[in-house]
Structure formats: C-alpha cells, structure tokens
Design a binder for these strands. Sequence first.
DNA 1: CCCACAAGTCATCGTTCGTTGACTTGGAGG
DNA 2: CCTCCAAGTCAACGAACGATGACTTGTGGG
Lengths: 221, 221
Amino acid sequence: MAAQPVTKTARHPGRRRDRAATRAALLDAARRRFGRQGYEGTGLREIAADVGVDPALIPRYFGSKRALYAEAVHVEIPSGLAADVNAPVPHLADALLREVVFGDWPGFDGEHPLVAMLRSAGHSDVRDLLRHQLCDGYLNALSGRLDGPDAALRAELLGALLIGMGVLRSVVGSPALSDATYEQLRPLVARLSAALAAAPAVKGSSGGGSRGGPRRGEASR
Amino acid sequence: MAAQPVTKTARHPGRRRDRAATRAALLDAARRRFGRQGYEGTGLREIAADVGVDPALIPRYFGSKRALYAEAVHVEIPSGLAADVNAPVPHLADALLREVVFGDWPGFDGEHPLVAMLRSAGHSDVRDLLRHQLCDGYLNALSGRLDGPDAALRAELLGALLIGMGVLRSVVGSPALSDATYEQLRPLVARLSAALAAAPAVKGSSGGGSRGGPRRGEASR
DNA sequence: CCCACAAGTCATCGTTCGTTGACTTGGAGG
DNA sequence: CCTCCAAGTCAACGAACGATGACTTGTGGG
C-alpha cells in the first residue's frame, strides 16, 4: 500500500480531499455502527460523525442507507476453508473455530460479521444474506466432507455450535466463554466435531465410518 | 372460551372495554413485534394496530416504549430444569433441546424469547438481561451437574450449541436444521452432550504452573 | 496565477417517531 | 333514566430520521 499519491502537500493528517478514502472510512464506520447497534438503531448522522464529515455524503456516495448497509455487511468469507479441500473434519472445525470465533475481523470490532449481522436480522433481506453467506460459504464446504444421509444436518449442527459460541462471546458476554482462550476451547471443539463426524448410529448405515471411522467417540447413548 | 364474566351483554367478540385485557393484548403484540423486528424496528403504532387500539394507550399503560419492551421480554424461564435436579446431563440436554429449540413459546411466534431478544441486542441493557436470564436460568443449572475445572465452560458450550440451533432455525433459516424434527436431532444432541459431559482430557501441553499462559492466538494480519 | 471541477457543507424538506393533553364514549351504579 | 368515571380516541407537539438541491471550498492542470 504505497500510502497516498500525495500530489502536493500532505497537511491534514488522515484525509485530504479524497473521495475514495472518505468513502472507505464511511464504510468502515458503518460496519462498526451497524454491527454494534443494528440497522434501525444506527443513524447516518452517527456514521458521518465518526468519520468527521457531513451526513449528506452518505446518500451521495452509496445511494441510500440500505445500499450502504448492503455494502457494509457484504464481506467475502476468506475461507481458508476452500483451500484445504481434503482436510479432515476435525481439522476443518479447528480452522473454523480459529476463524469464526477467534478471528479478529478488523472492520467489525473483532466479532464475526455474521454474528454482527444477527443484530439486524429483522429484515428479510438480511436473513437471506445471512443464510446465503452461511450456507454457501461455510456449511456446504463442511457437509461435503461428511457422509451419511444427514450430513447437512450434522454440518449445520457444527455451524450452530460455532455461531452460538460467537453469540455467547460477543453478544451475550457469558463469563466462561468470553474469557476462554483458543487453547482452552480447541480440545473441546475437537471432541464435539469428532462426535459429529462419526456416521449416524441408526438409519441402517452400513460399514461403520467410511472415512477414518469414529475417532474416539463414545457415541453410545 | 366464554370465560369472561360478562356483566351485561357480550356483543363485541373479544374485548369490550377492559383495561387489563387491552393491556395484556398490547403486551402480547409487543412480544411478537419486538421479537420479529427488534426494538428499534418496531413502532408503537404497529403494536397498537395489531390490537386495534390507539397508540396513545401504550405510553399510558406502560409508561414508555422502553418499559413496554422490558416487560415484554421479561419471561420467567419455566425450567423443568430445576425440577429434576439429579437428572444426568444427557437427559438434561434432551430436555433443553425440547424446551429451548422445539418448545413453542406462544407469545413469541414459536421461537425462544432469548433468541428473539438477540435481534435487539444493540442495547446494553438487553445484553445484561440476556446474560442474566441465560446464565442464571440455564447455564448455572447445567454447570452444576458437570465437574472438572472447566465445567462452566463446557456448560456454556452446550448452551452455545442450543442457542446456535435456535438462531439457525428461526433467524437464519438454514435448510437442514429448519426442517429437522426433534426425533432427528435428539440422538445427535445426545452424542454431543455426552462428549461434553465426559471429564476433560488431561491436556499435557501446559505443564507449567502459570495457568492458561499469556498465549495470544496468532493474530493474522 | 487562476480557473474549472470535484469534494464537501449547509439549509431544509417531508416523514415518522414517541409522547402528551384535551376530548369523547361506553357502561355500571344510584 | 340519568350521571359519573374510567377506557379509549383524536390532534398535535418536538425531535430525529433519510434524503435532496444549492452553495462553498479546496486542489490539480493549464
């Protein structure tokens, strides 16, 4: 990032008169505000005040508040997931734990954008966006590595665990999970993902555990 | 039905001129609206229109919108939990699954009030209420039945799973979990809760005395 | 040096919000 | 039947909202 092509004099510290930089700063402030307060709870005047510009710039640069929100919450999931396609499920779960729960998302105050989006889940388009990003970004990649008739269901259960952990940590602030470190949580999540990776007990699924088999699960109920 | 002590003539179907009944109807409509749209996304005129009365009744009967919200989301957790104190953890997890995920909460459109409250989690007092109800109502009862140094953490992990399931089902609407039945989910949750109920495996990694260690996760930048 | 154009500001519009006070109406008691 | 009080309605308020158009100001190119 060759910082700025300063043409003449860089007198002002951050922003001189740069449309792109102002737009990016507005987008960043919008991410934070929308994530923390939800869509309806955030005013354009707040976002503009965070950046230090006039609120009228927002409808100008983004079209409308709703378009700003759509652009703010749209984040491509980096998905180190897609990289290691052949990784076993517990390794994937570990990667997801690191990324979804413990990854610091710079524009979102350290919480995962999907968790932040939950606060604005009153609108149906937010629901659609959430479902799309979650299912296509994470769950599909996960369920493809499971087998059995309810692979999708077990993948979503793992997703529910991770989403719930994010919610408890950054929304609710439950004591134990909020203070837990990654090293503390890793073996527990590994145990849970192993329990989910095992093929379903019933359903007449033949040949127990095609891939690696049940890892150390005492799956007996 | 027809349990109303009709004093003279029961001409109007539902409500004649009954302050208590109108108040209760407003509270119920408020629960539904706040749960579905969040606090900021709900207007008093909407709630009043659902009941069919004038919006001015709400500040009159409840004091303010905020007080109405506080009264609407305050629900005592029935907690068949506290009843069977000696039930083993998997049985408890099953009861929680039935109650939290599949219980139909009449005033909240079938989703758990804690999940509904997530949509208004922008305010710190909602966060406090959530944490209080969740921790004191569910997690404490759960962690008391686990042992080991991280009993609270494992209890919160189970809570995270259930909360995440509720979120995925009623907020996100992920396909597999939304269509799943209780009978489908029960064995899976049983497996997970069994994995959590087991005593923590002795992690030989941190042999040193300093608990936890100041290890900070590698902050990918 | 200066000037045109874009970046940013200002005043303001129409709407909707929560809330308030004055008014109207229904229904039970005398 | 009349009266009175509470339940409910109506109109309106000030504030905040998103959005718009006209204006001001800074800056790079000539």
